[in-house]
Amino acid sequence: MTQHHLQGRTEKEILWFQRRGFLQAAAAWTAMGGFAAAHAQQRSNVVQMVGDVQVNGRRFSSQQTVQTGDDIQTGPGASLIFVIGNASFQVRQNSRLTVERGRSLTAVSLLRLVTGAVASVWGKGYDRSIVTPTLTAGIRGTGVYTEVFPEQNSRSYFCNCYGVVNMDAGGDAAVSRADYHQAFWGEVEPKNGRMLTPARAINHTDEELEFLAQLIDQRTAWQIAGRKGVKDGKGYMDEQPATPHPAVR
């Protein structure tokens, strides 16, 4: 189990990938052909659902399908894992988000997170975005973790777990190139004159990104490299890289 730090989350919540129910569901999802087969056979694209979930204001069941354009809300203790096209998502409890339609019915162009948290892996493709109350992340193929903290006036957290992401918060912009977890805060008020500031890696694990990648037949950057870096939020394999965190430039 990789090192991880918690802030307002519990071990049980972020270790969802260890549950027997999920492992069985993930194995069945892969064996049945993944999203392409589910879409062709008009089956649900939900890999696993736990607890109370509402979609577009109505109670949702695991036999239904999450579609682009849907508004998703999870209750206390709930979790929702689903796949749309070449992107996979794990929505934490007490979250609300919208997956907006892209170039087709099976492509997400924008994930708008209002509150709560979601881990996601995106296959390669055209530009897409994740938007929170205080930051915007432009992505292509990558794995990320995003969280909005309502108790901190919707201060937003974003970790580019691997890949290239264009970050923006209140006019502060940076290009994030990460091999291993490069993390940012989107501030509500300027901090040392900056709206985009460095963060450490919190509330997510390597293993959950690996499982989400597997659901769309992908591998994480550290799986491909065959090694892991130091999970300090700086985004590099080496502990003391020559390049500083992009939010402090």
Rank of each mutant, 00 (worst) to 15 (best):
I14P: 12
S109Y: 04
R101G: 10
G51D: 01
F17K: 00
Q90R: 15
F211C: 04
A247E: 02
T243N: 06
E13C: 11
G116L: 10
L113E: 01
V118R: 08
I72R: 04
P150Q: 06
R9H: 04
W185N: 01
D238T: 08
G125N: 02
A225D: 14
Y126R: 13
A247K: 06
D238S: 10
Q63M: 09
A183E: 00
M49I: 00
G229E: 07
S129Q: 04
A38L: 08
T10F: 13
R194C: 02
V230T: 05
A199F: 14
Y126D: 07
D168K: 13
W29F: 14
L97M: 12
S95K: 09
F211Q: 09
K12L: 14
Q67C: 12
N192Y: 14
V99M: 12
Q3E: 13
F22N: 03
N160G: 02
D71F: 15
L135K: 04
G75N: 03
L23Y: 02
A199H: 12
K124E: 07
S104A: 13
H39G: 01
F158L: 08
G186P: 09
H204M: 07
F184Y: 15
Q223Y: 05
R227L: 14
T142W: 13
H5V: 12
N160K: 05
D238M: 07
